[in-house]
Simulated scan of single mutants.
Amino acid sequence: MKRTVTQLADGRELIYFDQRDDADRSAIDRRPLEPRPVASELRYDPLTEEWIAMAGHRQTRTFLPAGTSAECPLCPSSDARSTEIPAYDYDVVVFENRFPSFSTNFGTYHDVGGLSDVRPGVGRCEVVCFTSDHSSSFSKLSDAQVRLVMEAWADRTAELSATEGVEQVFCFENRGEEIGITLAHPHGQIYAYPYVTPRTKLQLGAAARYQGPGNLFADVLAAERAAGTRVIADNEAWTAFVPAAARWPFEVHVYPHRQVPDLAALTEEERAAFAPLYTAVLQAFDGLFGGVMPYISAWHQAPVRRDRELAYLHLELFSIRRAPNKLKYLAGSESAMGAFVNDVMPEEAARMLRSRIDQE
Rank of each mutant, 00 (worst) to 15 (best):
K2D: 11
T4F: 10
V5M: 04
R12A: 01
R12P: 03
E13T: 15
R20P: 10
D22E: 14
S26M: 09
P32V: 07
V38W: 03
P46V: 02
E49V: 04
E49L: 00
H57C: 11
P65M: 07
P65W: 04
A66I: 05
S69V: 04
A70H: 12
A70V: 13
C72K: 03
S82N: 06
Y88H: 12
D91C: 05
F99Q: 06
S103D: 06
T104C: 08
N105L: 06
N105C: 08
H110V: 13
P120V: 03
R124S: 10
V128Q: 00
A144Q: 15
A152S: 14
A152P: 02
A154C: 13
E164C: 08
V166T: 05
V169S: 03
E177N: 11
Y191G: 00
Y195I: 08
K201R: 15
K201N: 14
L204P: 00
R209P: 08
L216A: 15
F217K: 05
L221C: 06
L221Y: 04
A222Y: 01
R225Q: 13
R225T: 07
A227W: 09
A240Y: 09
W248V: 02
R258I: 14
Q259T: 07
Q259H: 07
A265R: 04
Y295P: 04
R305E: 15
R306C: 14
D307V: 00
R308Y: 09
R308K: 14
Y312C: 01
Y312L: 05
S319V: 10
R322H: 03
G332W: 11
S335W: 10
A336M: 13
M337R: 15
G338C: 10
F340H: 13
V341G: 12
V344C: 03
E360H: 11
